[in-house]
Computed example of a mutant assay.
Amino acid sequence: MKTQTTPLSLILFFCFLIFGTSRTHLAKAQQQEKRSSVPEATQAGQNEKALEATWKLAEMDGEAVDDLFPHNHPTIEFNVKENQVAGFAGCNQFHGQLTLDGAYMKIVGVVATKKACPALDEEEEFLAILQEIDQYDVTGNELSLWSGGQLLLTFRKAE
């Protein structure tokens, strides 16, 4: 009778051994994955920190800002800690709420003062584009804002 229970015990022992080993490998793989994603999180944090500046519009939808706003170029400032954005739209001051998550950016609730000026149509287009943004990238002194994979706004860090 003892010989009949031994094979069953051995089978159960090997099953536990195999299952336990595979769980250990899975845990190690998950730890390795977490370690490899740290640089991405750090990069996103660095981009968020780099946003904390005054940015001057250089291009809007592929057009040079000098052609669209010959007198006063729009600017934008990000307050990442407070999740806010503010700036000058070419004629009027504006502000809104900011959401960041990695390279994802969303600007909502944009409101502006109502002063009249010659570039009012361009200003309204600029403010509308801001609310379409879904991705951003900071490279050196250049900020690129994208929507649906299309580059819409390019800013340069103001000096």
Score class of each variant (00 low, 15 high):
Met1Trp: 09
Gln4Glu: 13
Gln4Phe: 07
Gln4Ala: 14
Thr5Asn: 09
Thr6Ser: 10
Pro7Leu: 05
Leu8Ser: 10
Leu10Arg: 08
Leu10Pro: 02
Ile11Tyr: 04
Ile11Ser: 14
Phe13Val: 09
Phe13Glu: 12
Phe13Ala: 15
Leu17Trp: 06
Leu17Thr: 10
Phe19Trp: 14
Phe19Val: 15
Gly20Thr: 11
Gly20Glu: 09
Thr21Arg: 12
Arg23Ser: 14
Thr24Leu: 13
Leu26Thr: 03
Lys28Gln: 13
Gln31Lys: 13
Gln32Asn: 12
Lys34His: 10
Arg35Ala: 12
Val38Lys: 11
Val38Ile: 12
Glu40Cys: 12
Thr42Cys: 03
Ala44Met: 01
Ala44Lys: 03
Ala50Gln: 10
Leu51Ala: 01
Thr54Ile: 08
Thr54Ser: 12
Trp55Pro: 11
Lys56Gly: 03
Lys56Tyr: 00
Leu57Cys: 09
Ala58Asp: 10
Glu59Arg: 10
Glu59Ser: 09
Glu59Val: 05
Asp61Gly: 07
Ala64Arg: 14
Asp66Pro: 07
Asp66Ala: 14
Asp67Pro: 08
Phe69Ile: 01
Phe69Tyr: 04
Phe69Thr: 00
His71Trp: 10
His73Phe: 11
Thr75His: 02
Ile76His: 05
Phe78Arg: 04
Phe78Leu: 07
Phe78Gln: 06
Asn79Thr: 03
Lys81His: 05
Lys81Thr: 02
Glu82Leu: 11
Glu82His: 10
Gln84Tyr: 03
Gln84Trp: 07
Ala86Val: 02
Phe88Met: 04
Ala89Ser: 14
Gly90Tyr: 00
Cys91Pro: 00
Cys91Asn: 01
Phe94His: 04
Gln97Pro: 06
Gln97Ser: 13
Asp101Val: 08
Met105Ser: 08
Ile107Thr: 00
Val111Tyr: 06
Lys115Gln: 14
Ala116Val: 09
Cys117Met: 05
Cys117Asn: 04
Cys117Ala: 04
Pro118Lys: 13
Pro118Glu: 12
Ala119Gln: 10
Leu120Thr: 13
Asp121Glu: 14
Glu122Thr: 10
Glu125Ser: 14
Phe126Gly: 07
Leu127His: 03
Ala128Asn: 11
Ala128Arg: 12
Ile129Cys: 09
Gln131His: 05
Asp134Arg: 02
Asp137Leu: 14
Val138Gly: 06
Thr139Asn: 13
Gly140Trp: 01
Asn141Glu: 13
Asn141Phe: 08
Glu142Arg: 14
Glu142Phe: 09
Leu143Tyr: 00
Ser144Glu: 13
Leu145Lys: 05
Trp146Ala: 15
Leu151Thr: 01
Leu151Gly: 02
Leu151Pro: 02
Leu151Glu: 02
Leu153Gln: 01
Leu153Val: 04
Leu153Arg: 06
Thr154Glu: 08
Phe155Ser: 13
Lys157Glu: 04
Ala158Leu: 09
Glu159Phe: 07
